[in-house]
């Protein structure tokens, strides 16, 4: 039990630390790396809770896919640090305020947390002892929440199509002969008849 507690504080502390470092790191690459470290620690916390599936998903999805993509993007963008810094300076104070607000709130709430007696009966998850939690999640996700699972699919579809639509630019106009346009061109669009007085110009 002691080791369990120690591991919890280790992971939790490292999560907080790396989250903090993500924010203050100067180079974007460092930020991304700290983010990855934070995800790993988060996965560790899940392992401690006994939900190894979520821990694996955390690592695979967030670290393997999201964060690595971040790194790619970061490497492709040339950051203009000095310009950004001046503008951002003032705004830095606001997150601090929000952080203090949220932190004190969490202390306030969790300090005296207790469950309503009825609450435990409403719990949808089966007991962890009997089946593995992969099975449990599978059971509930594909039966009870099957519809929501489908909606999530739609959300991803929407996000994907949206991303493509928004990033796709129309191909640049190439100077090419368009027969149909030439044939269909009207006189009035092209030719303007002016009655010019002598020695006045147009």
């Amino acid at each position: 039990m002691v080791i369990f507690g120690m591991m919890f504080y280790l992971f939790a502390g490292l999560t907080l630390l790396s989250a903090f470092l993500t924010l203050i790191a100067r180079a974007p690459v460092h930020s991304a790396l700290w983010l990855i470290f934070m995800f790993l620690n988060g996965a560790g916390l899940f392992v401690l809770l006994g939900s190894e599936l979520l821990a694996m998903i955390f690592v695979i999805v967030y670290v393997g896919a999201v964060a690595v993509l971040f790194l790619f993007v970061v490497m492709m963008i040339k950051p203009q640090r000095e310009v950004l810094k001046k503008e951002i300076k003032w705004y830095k104070r606001i997150p601090v305020l929000i952080g203090i607000f949220f932190g004190s709130e969490m202390v306030f709430i969790l300090g005296g947390w207790s469950f309503v007696p009825v609450a435990s009966t409403l719990d949808q998850l089966p007991s962890r002892v009997q089946i593995s939690n992969t099975t449990a999640i599978g059971n509930i996700l594909y039966t009870h929440y099957a519809v929501l699972f489908e909606i999530a699919g739609f959300i991803l579809l929407g996000a994907m199509v949206g991303a493509i639509v928004l990033t796709k630019r129309a191909p640049k106009e190439r100077y090419r002969q368009k027969m149909s346009d030439q044939v269909l061109e009207k006189k009035k669009n092209r030719i303007k008849i002016c009655h010019v007085d002598i020695r006045k110009g147009v």
Partner: peptide, 16 residues
């Protein structure tokens, strides 16, 4: 939960 997923679907569409 269903509210949240519905709202996200709607939001994504509106973002685009």
């Amino acid at each position: 939960l269903s509210f949240y997923l519905g709202m996200e679907l709607q939001n994504i569409a509106f973002y685009v």
